[in-house]
Design a protein around this nucleic acid. Structure first.
Lengths: 101, 101
DNA sequence: TTGACAGGCAACCTTTTGGTTGCCTATTGT
DNA sequence: ACAATAGGCAACCAAAAGGTTGCCTGTCAA
């Protein structure tokens, strides 16, 4: 899941879906103009595998929807741990940097 | 920065530093017993480049400190965007999944 | 009904990543 | 003083990521 987010292009796709949900593959391709359609497909596939986007085939179109659940889980479960210890870590860091060499 | 977080080993290192700040490279090596020292060094290097850990050479030891600032920035600036639109995205997703095929 | 459009699948290539081995430097304890 | 400890640096190698091209299938519209 972090791996899925670790690419600027994929983050762009997510941002676009956040702005307008349910876009087709063609539309997503316009966001990444340097890539071929198949290249975009691969990125989309990674986002699907990470369960960050959910797709629906509607006729000859494939619609892409943002799934906000896992990204929110990460934010709550993982990042909040760091938030919790932020002050302690900061003071230790400060002390180490200021300590007499 | 997401790239730096996109590896289980590196997350383990961060977790360990969150638990006890200021560990040496040797100590970090014990956390990743399958890797050689140089392997661990490379991971540490990536965390340093992402500004997630700060190191101090003290004598012949290299002490590693967690820098909680950037990870917190990410949480606030990036993830909160998704949190903000969570309900809207969820309802669109739900509607798309339930729509008549 | 047939041509154009939206997309899927597989093979292939190149670059990056993740790891190793080998050797070098600096600090410390005895 | 010197051996052991802590770490750095560079070359090298295998595996994975990121792309591409080529071709195939299904759907819609004229």
């Amino acid at each position: 899941m972090f791996k899925a987010l670790a690419d600027e292009g994929r983050r762009r796709l997510l941002d676009a879906l956040r702005e307008r949900n349910g876009q087709t593959l063609q539309e997503l391709c316009e966001l990444l103009p340097d890539l071929t359609r198949q290249g975009v497909t691969k990125h989309v596939r990674i986002l699907e595998d990470a369960n960050l986007v959910v797709t629906v085939r509607r006729g000859r179109h494939k619609l892409h929807y943002l799934n906000p659940v896992p990204i929110n889980d990460i934010a709550e479960r993982w990042l909040s741990n760091y938030e919790r210890d932020k002050l302690r870590a900061l003071s230790a860091l400060k002390a180490a940097l200021e300590e007499d060499p």
